[in-house]
Amino acid sequence: MPEITEYAPGTPSWADLLAHDGQVAKDFYTTLFGWEYQDHPAGPDMTYTMYTHNGQAACASAEAGPGQEDLPPHWSVYVTVDDLEAAVERAQAAGGTVVFGPMDVTPMPDHTVGRMAIIQDREGAFLRLWYPVAHAGAGVMMEPGALCWFELATTDPESAADFYQQVLGVEINQDENVQEFPYWLMTLGDQMVGGIIQIGEDWGPVPPNWGVYFGVNDVDATANHAKELGGSAIVEPRDLLDFARFSVLRDAEGAVFTVIRLNDWH
């Protein structure tokens, strides 16, 4: 597929992993997905690892730095905005919290790759807002080996839908095609950009969070390989309605992600 060079405002465009041991993360994901990686300086004694799929930027990881030692390993989602300060103001007005920023992301002197802020929605889920300068986001999506979907798990989908419609300018409606469980779709025009699902009582102590899906050619084989690499399965491979097969996994340090294969991939 051609390299993606820009994302419409309101579109999830990037994801990165906070790891306790950066090398463990690199070994796990490069082996599981066949990615290559390159380490980049990200400040004093800090490294930002960029993963590539077929030569195009796929996602990234970073080792926990000072003040992050107690955070569990986890994936974070970035959404592109065209005015960072305005988006932050909308988040505050809608009842959210600004956790960090806005700030320039300048890994090297005189090289600003973008501007970022971290917000927390009403229910507590964290989201990164991204204003691109030199880094638009993932150069590839929606294929095996790449990010494919972004999903908010929350305790109050209606409240979350109201919040993100105000902040991101997306439309969010319940998906009438899904009868088995309530599901909400985020759309920009005719493009689906994300989903919202309610945290079930049987999930255990799961806080509201944004999660990532990666495309794979074989869900069952990938889940088994993840276990061989020290990961585990939260949801064993299963069919998703009539259009996909998926599995929810933990990596070797416990970070949660989902793998999926769409039935129309040939």
Rank of each mutant, 00 (worst) to 15 (best):
A134I: 03
M1W: 01
N263V: 09
M50Y: 01
V193L: 12
A62V: 03
A226Y: 03
D242Y: 10
Y164Q: 11
E176I: 02
G169I: 06
V98Y: 05
N209P: 08
S13R: 11
A244P: 05
P2H: 11
S159M: 11
Q120S: 11
I196A: 07
V167K: 05
F257Y: 12
A60I: 00
A125P: 04
G22K: 08
T187C: 13
V140Y: 00
A136M: 06
P182S: 11
M50A: 07
Q120H: 11
P73W: 09
W265C: 13
R250I: 04
E253I: 10
N263Y: 12
G230F: 03
T47S: 14
A87S: 15
L129S: 06
A19Q: 06
V167Q: 05
G65M: 10
E89I: 01
D162F: 11
A223Q: 13
W130S: 02
W210D: 06
V212T: 09
A226P: 02
A252G: 09
D21G: 15
W35Q: 00
K26V: 08
Q23K: 12
L240I: 14
V24T: 13
L147A: 00
L129G: 10
L127M: 12
G101S: 09
M116V: 14
S76Q: 08
V105G: 11
D16T: 10
V193H: 03
V99I: 09
Q198D: 08
K26P: 02
I234T: 10
I197G: 12
Q165N: 11
Y48Q: 12
L84S: 02
D27C: 06
Q179C: 04
S159W: 01
E171G: 13
P12V: 07
A91F: 08
M50N: 07
L188D: 00
V79K: 09
W265D: 07
T49K: 05
A57G: 06
D202A: 15
W210T: 01
P144L: 01
R122G: 12
V113E: 03
P72Y: 14
F246K: 00
A86Q: 14
Y37P: 07
M116S: 05
E89M: 09
Y78Q: 06
N177W: 15
D104F: 06
F243W: 13
T5M: 10
I234W: 11
P182C: 00
R238P: 06
I234E: 02
P182V: 14
R238Y: 13
H40A: 06
W130G: 01
E180S: 14
H74T: 10
R245L: 04
Q56T: 00
A117F: 04
A153F: 08
F243S: 03
I172T: 04
V24W: 00
G124H: 15
G254P: 00
L127C: 04
S13E: 01
G101Y: 07
M46H: 15
P2Y: 11
W130Y: 03
V206P: 01
M108Q: 13
G211N: 00
E228C: 09
E89H: 04
G230A: 04
P144S: 11
S247W: 05
M142V: 02
